[in-house]
Design a protein around this nucleic acid. Structure first.
Length: 626
DNA sequence: CTTCGTTGCGCG
DNA sequence: AAAGCGCGCAACGAAG
């Protein structure tokens, strides 16, 4: 794809583009990777880009330093790091080349013109720095994220990488790093997520070890796709973090005042919430009740003759009492106030943006997690505050009924694949074996993927298994493996974590000579619990892989077809993506989002028998989507 | 006083 | 006693 870049020589490119070029790159060499580290081994052999440009570094103009965000300023005059240019065989085409903050732009321009892949320990760190200067890159290899995947993947070559990584004690890797392994040794050399202290040599050895861990097999092909997708996800997470999600403080405040009343003084309830509390106290005959204490509340419920075992919504739905409607209203409003009220607004919204902080691969299944502000739990009640700028639109897309479709594709279940081609997967299932009853079809399908055995889901399972033997067989097998204490893997090769200590302890107890029936049933319970986890892991994890590929294809489509980069991904939530786009680009973005979904399915499954449609809405605010 | 586990509920 | 999966966050309340 980018092998064409070998066509122009480094020297020629230097003159054509007027950017610093490592003049040591021989003519005809084909650079493929830019390896980024904080320093070289020792100080010898480090060149400065200014020297290569024939400039004196002391007089070189700091071109973009001014635009760096405050607080991110590096120590004065200190270089940001070093790069090493490598070819496909990982041969260095340059010595370690030090760059400083003001050089980043030139460096990025040079590398991007050749479609090089950036190799670094942490995308969050390095790319975050690039982005503060407004520089973007197309592709990378995030060693930290890839290490996590490779360490647990059963698909690595000979399992060598996984074994080495397991041997390294988690806390000591940083300290152990300076000693380093024998040259050529494979394995994980350092694990600190921050790239501080990693030399170009160390980073290079790690990269070589990771590439060597990917076998030249079908499993290796899939693993490579996963590593690329995870790395692309890291780029996107960094870009979202730098862009922010448009958030209208005005709309949010209006919504809060409408539902809660004026903003209360610190430590007080808003008026309207206080009024509901009074109502609740009256309805329960408990004048001093603190409704925020589940214990107090439960006692008050009992005194009022409500025989509930807990105060959860689920439980209270089964009971009849005039106070319960009031309680539900209180819980809703209280939730809004405590989790997404004025305090939240002050904490997380700045400059008209909400700033999500994603952790790529933060969930064991490969889903992203997010810290701060509950970016993955934005309640429906405040979504109207997510608004496009004037002249812009939000494009909100979600992959409908994703998990059963993923199950159909990964299990190659022909009957379920056929069901995926209609408008509504659950209706199609309902029409084959469930008398057209969509609700039942949905319950049994979800129940199968989650391991539900009770109620309708359990009762209808045999029918589902008969109709879709491949699909049900796959998840049943995953469950059996988990129950036996073994690991499972997603379609692309992300391994599940092993059973925890409780699993092993319970099994030991159940197998001991003086085991009681209680020991046995406890061990069975824990084993079934792990079975439900591994059962769900394969589907949720593979769906996350598909979503990552989808997201990556959306990003690529935008970069290639709308290269002014004014259309941006601003939010991602498991199977849903939101873009903020100029209104006149909305139609094109919608096309890109659809095409990206189809492409993701081909990439992951090498088949288009299963359909993975996405529903797309072009709206002014988030609440208008679906 | 801080830390930590639990409850409850938001999201997929 | 068993329990449909994966998360993060606010608040409570017990423990240190």
């Amino acid at each position: 794809m980018d092998g064409e870049s070998g066509g122009h020589s480094a020297a020629a490119a230097c003159h054509n583009e007027g950017v610093p070029i490592p003049s040591t790159i021989p003519d005809g060499a084909a650079p493929r990777f830019v390896l980024v580290a904080t320093h070289a081994e020792g100080d010898s052999g480090v060149f400065d880009v200014h020297e290569l440009r024939g400039e004196d570094p002391r007089t070189a103009q700091p071109s973009q330093k001014e635009s760096l965000r405050e607080g991110q300023e590096p120590a004065e005059e200190s270089p940001a790091g070093v790069v090493l240019i490598l070819d496909e065989a990982l041969r260095p085409l340059t010595g370690p080349l030090s760059f400083s903050y003001e050089d980043i732009g030139d460096l990025v321009t040079w590398a991007e013109a050749r479609a090089l892949r950036w190799v670094w320990e942490s995308t969050r760190y390095w790319y975050g720095m690039f982005l503060t200067d407004g520089m973007t890159v197309e592709r990378c290899w995030d060693l930290g994220l890839c290490r996590t995947i490779l360490s647990s993947s059963p698909a690595t070559a000979g399992g060598g990488y996984a074994a080495d990584a397991r041997d390294a004690p988690a806390g000591d890797l940083d300290a152990a790093a300076p000693a380093g392994p024998e040259p050529g040794a494979q394995g994980s050399l350092f694990a600190a997520p921050a790239p501080r202290g990693a030399s170009a040599q160390t980073v290079g050895r790690e990269f070589a070890a990771q590439r060597a861990a990917v076998p030249r097999t079908t499993a290796g092909r899939k693993l490579e796709l996963l590593l690329a997708a995870e790395s692309a996800g890291a780029l996107i997470a960094a870009e979202i973090r730098a862009t922010g999600m448009p958030w209208s403080t005005r709309v949010h405040r209006a919504l809060l005042e409408d539902q809660l009343g004026p903003r209360p003084p610190e430590g007080h309830r808003p008026q309207k919430l206080e009024r509901v509390v009074e109502e609740l106290r009256a309805a329960l005959g408990a004048p001093k009740l603190n409704p925020d204490s589940p214990q107090e509340l439960l006692r008050a419920l009992h005194r009022a003759g409500i025989d509930a075992a807990s105060t959860s919504q689920w439980e209270l739905a089964d009971h009849e009492h005039p106070a319960l409607e009031v309680l539900e209203r209180y819980k809703k409003l209280s939730r809004l106030f405590t989790s997404n009220g004025w305090a939240w607004l002050a904490m997380w919204v700045r400059d008209g943006k909400f700033w999500p902080d994603y952790t790529v691969g933060g969930v064991v299944t490969g889903r992203w997690s997010a810290r701060g502000g509950g970016a993955l739990q934005i309640p429906a009640t405040v979504r109207s505050a997510v608004r496009a700028d004037p002249g812009c639109k939000l494009v909100v897309a979600d992959a409908s009924q994703l998990e059963p479709r993923i199950l159909a594709a990964m299990s190659r279940d022909e009957a379920l694949a056929i069901a995926s081609t209609g408008k509504d997967l659950y209706q199609a299932i309902a029409n084959r074996g469930f008398g057209g009853d969509r609700a039942s079809a949905k319950i049994v399908m979800l129940g199968a993927m989650y391991g539900q055995t009770s109620g309708d889901a359990g009762r209808l399972m045999p029918q589902l298994a008969k109709t879709y033997p491949q699909a049900v067989g796959l998840i049943e097998h995953a469950a059996r493996e988990g129950e036996a204490g073994r690991n499972v893997s997603t379609f692309l090769g992300r391994g599940s974590p092993g059973p925890d200590d409780a699993f092993a302890a319970a099994r030991r107890a159940a197998n001991s000579l003086d085991a009681t029936p209680a020991d046995q049933s406890r061990a069975d319970s824990i084993a079934r619990s792990r079975g439900r986890f591994t059962r769900n892991f394969v589907v949720q994890g593979t769906a996350a892989e598909w979503a990552l590929c989808w997201l990556g294809q959306v990003r690529l489509g935008i970069r290639r077809q709308l290269p002014d980069l004014s259309s941006r991904i601003v939010f991602f939530l498991h199977d849903e993506v939101m873009l903020h786009v100029p209104a006149d680009q909305a139609d094109e973005v919608v096309r890109i989002v659809h095409a990206a979904a189809a492409r993701a399915t081909e990439l992951v499954f090498r088949s288009d028998l299963v359909e993975t449609p996405v529903t797309v809405a072009v709206v002014d605010s988030y609440d208008q989507a679906k």
